[in-house]
Design a protein around this nucleic acid. Structure first.
Lengths: 335, 335
DNA sequence: ACAAGTCGTGTAAACGTTCTCATAACAATG
DNA sequence: CATTGTTATGAGAACGTTTACACGACTTGT
């Protein structure tokens, strides 16, 4: 492996000039530049990144940590971040936390150890090793949440209006004549689950004839299946089910199948997220679209502004969602 | 940010000793070790990775590049690699190539620039910037393929027996009485598509009454939908369709729906991969299970042996697959 | 008592960059 | 002609580690 020194020697210049050819080409005379470039090509020179970051303290990398890489919802978000990042000359380091705090910490450590310039976390959490720094120094961190506002207001974040999104779904179902609606939430602790449930109840306030029964899932297909079976087996089963993720809705569909129920004739179903599969389900799923790619763009933009010292006061951004009515929701069956 | 020198000064030892406390703790006296450890904790010392890799030329990172992070099939593989990697103290850098050669090159460059110790590529390709090195030096590279043997035999790889797996599916369908079978392949250029098609034809040799019509897809849901519609609209449509990926099978299901066909009563369907969604589709999908997690383990193991200089002659490994018959395949309808 | 280990530690030279100064050559200005 | 400014380059000091080598203090075996 040849170094910048080799190139310098071969081209008859100093290492400083070679360095400049790469980072500030206009500063070096055209002839010299061409000669250096040619030498670099001839030697197959590739700069040593470790040395570069040791010197500059910049890695041009950001970590994106998602709770479940298996979920297409996360994948879309990653795509968005990746797009914005590579446009700005940054590489994306991807982390799959599997909803595990320890793994989350590990990825956060990468920014503490300066293996990456910043951290984007899908979810509302704050890794403790970053919180420590924040509490000690009080200075803002190269860290941002997506899809969930942290309870700590100092931490920037981007999300949709979960409360109103959920409310719209319930209104949609109520308009179709559904009175008994089952909700399958994500883990209750998550602020966005809470927001969505608050949204559900806000509708109930205006339509007191609504009967809402909420159970707790974990966003997985299987929990959607299990919880739906429970709802169906209850004494007075709902005529519509609202899953707070499309994956759980997929499980619900399997549960309907298991009980011989036809959707939407016998029971209606709504999901949340609008993953790519939603439109291909059987029947195509009514759901709320979260603009995950735009969220990725936006989140990176904010982080990047911070990294480049671009003065900015933007802390939190709310993006527009969209209710997408497909065929899984229909009129409530006549009792 | 405190350095190893700060810790050394505070603890009254040399930087060498501090370094040893981290990398070879048994070499340093217990009392000293405790003192150093305490000092490190007090100062909140975190080692600078850039300096470390500059010195050692090791990053303890491997890049895993997959063609489509959105595909749960890839995700499972990543999980497998990640598991094996973190057990061995390696971090995984994830790359989403989106079937794009340029992106593939970019990730390969990371190992050339020593930003990572090795590259795992899902697919049969060889990035040109690595092939160059291989051709120039002739020495083996820290590079391995998964799910597809490279035409270049010098490159290690792990995959299943695609030929026989596909043959088993066709036999399964033929046993159910299907005579006209449609195949929706991935891009023809891919060796594993070729292998599977060869497998299909190997069955045809023994059962000459089979009519096979193969069309080319691109593994995406949408191509599955489109190609299936074409097959259904042909003069003598097949009674069974075999998609070379579960995602395309999902598209096929949507196509059936669009044409008012009930699966498996009117038409049978088989997929390939056994992604997590396969069992939850409507109807649950008959498919071939590829052991993606084990493949991840195995692939990392081979790469790791190479990296640690463990002498090994294993170049290529074939893992066991499994035909999983679910409800999407049934007896051929009576003409 | 001496030679030959072992053990714990320190010294200092790398690793490959970047970047601040310094300098030299030349042009423009008074 | 002296001064000032501009432009292209070089010298060399960091950046924070690891590690080969050296050394002194013990232990052990003769």
């Amino acid at each position: 492996m040849s170094t910048i020194i080799d190139v310098a020697r071969e081209a008859g210049v100093s290492s400083a000039t070679v360095s400049r050819v790469m980072s500030a080409p206009h500063q070096v005379a055209e002839g010299t530049r061409a000669r250096v470039l040619a030498t670099m090509a001839r030697l197959g020179y590739t700069p040593n990144i470790a040395a570069k970051t040791l010197r500059t303290l910049r890695t041009d990398k950001v970590v994106v940590a998602v709770p479940d890489i298996t979920n297409p919802f996360c994948a879309q978000f990653i795509r968005g971040v990746e797009e914005a990042a590579s446009a700005a000359g940054y590489a994306v380091l991807l982390g799959d936390t599997r909803y595990d705090k320890n793994r989350e910490e590990q990825y956060a450590m990468m920014v503490r150890r300066r293996e990456a310039d910043g951290l984007i976390l899908l979810g509302h959490g704050t890794p403790t090793c970053l919180r420590e720094v924040l509490d000690d120094s009080g200075r803002p961190l190269p860290f941002i949440n997506a899809c969930g506002f942290s309870p700590d207001p100092r931490i920037p974040a981007v999300q949709i209006d979960n409360l109103h999104a959920a409310a719209e779904v319930i209104e949609h179902l109520a308009d179709l004549g559904h009175k008994r609606i089952g909700i399958i939430s994500g883990p209750r602790a998550a602020p966005n689950s809470k927001d969505r449930i608050t949204g559900v109840h806000s509708v109930q306030l205006e339509r007191p004839d609504l009967e809402i029964s909420a159970v707790e899932g974990d966003f997985s297909i299987n929990s959607g299946l299990r919880r739906t079976l429970e709802l169906l087996d209850s004494p007075n089963p709902p005529t519509a089910i609202f899953c707070l993720s499309d994956e759980m809705a997929m499980g619900a569909l399997a549960a309907f199948r298991e009980r011989g129920l036809t959707c939407p004739r016998d029971i209606s179903l709504a999901g949340f997220d609008d993953i790519a599969y939603a439109q291909y389900m059987n029947p195509p799923l009514t759901t709320v679209r979260q603009p995950m790619e735009s969220m990725g763009h936006e989140v990176f933009r904010i982080l990047h502004d911070f990294l480049t010292g671009t003065p900015s006061l933007v802390r939190r951004v709310t993006l527009a969602h969209q209710l997408i009515a497909r065929e899984s929701t229909g009129p409530a069956p006549k009792a």
